[in-house]
Nucleic acid binder design. Structure first.
Ligand SMILES: [Mn+2]
Ligand SMILES: [Mn+2]
Ligand SMILES: [Zn+2]
Ligand SMILES: [Zn+2]
Lengths: 138, 138
DNA sequence: ATATTATTTGAGACTGAGTCTCAAATATAC
DNA sequence: GTATATTTGAGACTCAGTCTCAAATAATAT
């Protein structure tokens, strides 16, 4: 699907800048990226999108469900494309920075149960496990 | 135990400022507090501890295991006293700000299992569930 | 197509939690 | 006590992210 149509299907008005940002993040090799990654990519590719608009756009895309904003404890937001990507959790290697996605249905089920037990209505959750990946333990 | 002895038992050199900060956070009614909460408390109580030292001290206490630093997605750190308080996770009500602590052995076990399966050596994890508490659903 | 109206953009100032610097003060070791 | 090592405070600084507001662009009406 073209980025313009993708934007429209998410109820986002299409502009040149938004299309540039979306095309950029879709073309990324790295699944997880920061605002600065997007900015420097656009600069390098000579796609003129201002700093303010880039941040605004990432925020808008996250609100509309095109992106997902993660907090990996780096002190700034990390994004991932949420299109065709269901919820999952993350392992974060503090040595090499690798991010491993995982999903465990049982954990999700027990979380729901924990909420029910406490009369808490969950809107979402974040589970982040930090440590050393396979390679970084050697 | 006196705050001075508590500091020493955690291998932290005792100074007037550190004792003030520790006495402050122990006396807090609210279990979870921000750096600014500590600063304004000290100011109000006429305990002179500079901004730099307050931040430094909260960081030091967290490193030494006296406090625990949480990320509840507010954009700044939230602390809790870690003395006599084992690891647990948090439910965070986005309406009233209430923080509910919980622990589910089964979830912890499954997390360990998920790490083992992926050859990941965990150093710790953060599980935060956001939503509405019992009162805020009405 | 043109005019009208609503939304978006860019430059750069601003915010605010947290850090850094470095000389002075204080704690510890001798 | 003196010497040495650590800590403190004032305030400058950092940096991801936000805000302002006039100009530009997009959507809508005619
Ligand atoms: Mn992911
Ligand atoms: Mn807690
Ligand atoms: Zn690694
Ligand atoms: Zn509530």
């Amino acid at each position: 699907m073209s980025v313009v149509r993708l934007l429209k299907s998410y109820n986002i008005r299409s502009t040149r800048q938004r299309a540039e940002v979306l095309a950029g993040v879709i073309s990324f090799k790295q699944r997880h990226f920061s605002s600065e990654d997007v900015l420097s990519f656009l600069t390098q590719k000579k796609r003129k999108v201002s700093r303010a608009t880039t941040f605004r756009t990432l925020r808008l895309f996250s609100k509309k469900g095109l992106l997902r904003s993660l907090d990996l404890g780096k002190g700034w937001a990390i994004y991932e494309v949420a299109v065709d990507s269901p919820h999952h959790d993350h392992l974060y290697c503090i040595k090499c920075g690798k991010i491993i996605e995982f999903e465990e249905h049982q954990i999700e089920r027990l979380q729901d149960k924990a909420c029910r037990k406490r009369n808490f209505r969950s809107l979402g959750h974040t589970l982040r496990i930090v440590g050393f990946c396979r390679e970084c333990q050697k």
